[in-house]
Simulated assay, not measured.
Amino acid sequence: MMKKVLVTGGAGFIGLNLVNAYLKDGYEVVIVDNLSTGKIENIPTGVTFYEEDIRSQNFIEIVKKEKPDLINHHAAQIDVQYSIHQPVEDGSINILGTLNILEAARALKDEMDISLIYASSAAVYGDPVYLGIDEQHPIQPISYYGASKYAPESYMQIYHDLYGISYSIFRYANVYGIGQDPKGEGGVVSILVDKIVTDSLFTIHGDGEQTRDFIFVDDIVSANLLASKHPINTVCNISTHTKTSLLDLLQIAEEIIERKIETVYQEDRPGDIKHSYLLNEKANQLLNWKPQYSLKEGLAKTIQYYKEK
């Protein structure tokens, strides 16, 4: 029997990649997105779409009506700087929104088995005490965004203990790839690709020595597809286990496009951590998952796509 998945945030960056993969895999797909950052043109034919906020009572009614086997929850407020200026709205979307999704799942639990996938973030760890960061690393977010991504993890574990709702929680490293919007909190790779395509100045905040763990969106999708079939009822990092500095990222991009990228330096931004990379052994053990793309391969695919577009 065909499985049905409801993707929150399905018109956004990771969401659109997930939706296409689910369709290819034979799932029936329902998207719920309020289009605050998602785009209507990202929604493919062959899906059921509701323009709705995950915090609404309507959302619970949608879940009761559609009866998905799985809710893949990627709707979120993801801008660190926005969270610092608007902590209440950030918490409302990320914490109360997820709670509403859990309540919707609980409303269905008597009728059918339903499982959840929740997209968390490396931001929950804050400034690393040690590198690479494993799942036992202390939780000490330095932004409201990090706090608002962590709180739902606890709720999800308690809903599992109380009501038997299966779940998988993924703490993502820095995701990049096709479909990412360079505007707003686009992520450094999407901003860089945009500057390459438009041949404009790329801004480096700080000295450029800050490091991140950059993971291609196709690798994120493959982890989600595995957890869709086998919920792990725990949390794990989805990462490349590799640290790359901003200056290294620039150099790799310059090798791909075979020219220099013009840069300008500005001061560090508040709430940004200096160094980060995540271990991924747990995902390998529980899901038999490994990233398939090097940064150069993923970046080349992304640049090529936007150049042709």
Rank of each mutant, 00 (worst) to 15 (best):
A119F: 06
S121H: 14
F216N: 06
L225W: 14
L70I: 15
Q57A: 13
I196P: 00
E281M: 09
Y159V: 07
G208F: 00
I165W: 08
L35I: 07
A119T: 15
L192G: 01
A223H: 12
A123L: 13
S154M: 13
F202V: 00
L286E: 13
T240M: 05
S222F: 11
V5A: 15
R55P: 01
E135G: 04
I14D: 03
R171T: 10
F216T: 08
L250Y: 01
N224S: 15
S166E: 15
A147I: 07
V32N: 06
A76P: 01
E258P: 06
A283V: 08
G187H: 09
K296R: 14
L116K: 11
E255S: 13
K65P: 08
K307E: 00
V189Q: 00
V189L: 00
N20Y: 04
N94H: 06
D207T: 15
V29S: 06
V7H: 11
E209G: 06
S36H: 07
P138M: 09
A227Y: 13
A123H: 15
N72G: 10
R55F: 04
T211Q: 14
T203N: 01
Q251P: 03
D218G: 04
I114Y: 09
P231M: 13
S239C: 09
I43W: 04
H73R: 10
I101T: 08
L286Y: 12
L35H: 08
D134H: 12
A223C: 09
I252T: 09
G179D: 02
F59R: 06
A151Q: 07
P44G: 04
V264L: 08
N288E: 14
I178V: 02
A21P: 12
K195T: 14
L6D: 10
